[in-house]
């Protein structure tokens, strides 16, 4: 299509798009590059080196970061698992439960954590735990995470379930399957990509969370984001670059997997 007949294209839009992509990736790429900086300071470049990665694992702060990493990952796995299970059950009720008065309020409640600004949620959770006398620590972080991960797990699952026609389950029931069996043997397997997608999303969201975690964690415990934040407040050090690079690579990998999984259509 030459320019004259193409009524869709606008001059400059492609440039802005490329600019947009550059802006989005530049800081991340720069941090990744500087994580391999051999120099002591973060301002001067002194060649390629893996020393800061080594520092993360063996340096003076390594114990703190390792404990933080253990906390982060364990909380993320548990929170993602629990919230995905809850989300799957809820999606089944909302997408395949017919029409009833509680449906819209249930949906509203499930998406509530996304609608409310995160800091408001953080304050509310902190106040709540304080009011019921629950000491802040690992468990409070875990509970808070489970709660706000539910909508993130829910949305891909609902999307997937909506895309599966209920003729398959009806066929199963026509062939003498009970509803429970139809669910377990037909719907659940077909929904697996959506469930995996939801799990991965919930996992990343939990792993990455800062604000809510910072509020409800109390003094004695750190997760990776809060540890990183604390360290940054004292000054940007090169080992932060290394941790950041590792974390962001993990996020990219998980999202990519989630994307390909969700594209996998096992009804064809």
């Amino acid at each position: 299509m030459n320019v004259n007949t193409d009524i869709k294209t606008y001059a400059g839009f492609r440039f802005i798009t490329l600019l947009c992509v550059v802006i989005l990736y530049a800081p991340l790429i720069v941090v990744t590059i500087y994580s391999f900086n051999a120099s002591d300071s973060i301002t001067t470049w002194a060649g390629w080196s893996l020393r800061w990665y080594a520092d993360v694992f063996t340096g003076p702060e390594s114990a703190k970061f390792q404990q933080a990493a253990i906390n982060s990952f364990s909380i993320a796995i548990i929170a993602a698992t629990v919230s995905t299970a809850i989300a799957t059950a809820s999606a089944t009720a909302i997408v395949r439960g017919g029409k009833y008065r509680l449906r819209t309020p249930s949906l509203a409640l499930i998406t509530l954590p996304i609608m409310v600004p995160e800091i408001v949620l953080a304050v509310a959770t902190l106040i709540f735990f304080n009011a019921i006398g629950f000491t802040r620590g690992y468990v409070t972080i875990l509970i808070a995470h489970i709660a706000f991960c539910i909508p993130f797990a829910y949305l891909p699952i609902q999307a997937r379930m909506q895309g599966i026609e209920n003729t398959y389950e009806h066929a199963a029931m026509d062939l003498y399957a009970t509803k429970a069996q139809a669910f377990k043997r037909i719907l659940l397997p077909l929904m697996t990509p959506g469930i995996i997608s939801g799990f991965l999303l919930a996992f990343i969201v939990s792993l990455d969370d800062f604000i809510i975690t910072n509020f409800v964690k109390g003094a004695g415990i750190e997760t990776l984001p809060t540890a990183i934040f604390g360290s940054v407040k004292q000054g940007l050090k090169p080992n932060i670059m290394a941790i950041s690079t590792m974390l962001l690579s993990l996020s990219v990998v998980m999202v990519t997997i989630s994307y390909f999984v969700s594209k996998f259509d096992n009804t064809k």
Partner: peptide
């Protein structure tokens, strides 16, 4: 929230929704 024509699991829906109501009701609402 998807098509309302589907009501395969409507008998179980209250049980299915309970976990989210509990968790979100208690820890968000």
């Amino acid at each position: 929230g998807g098509s309302v024509a589907s009501d395969t699991y409507k008998n179980a829906r209250h049980w299915l929704l309970m976990p989210s109501w509990l968790v979100l009701g208690f820890f968000v609402f």
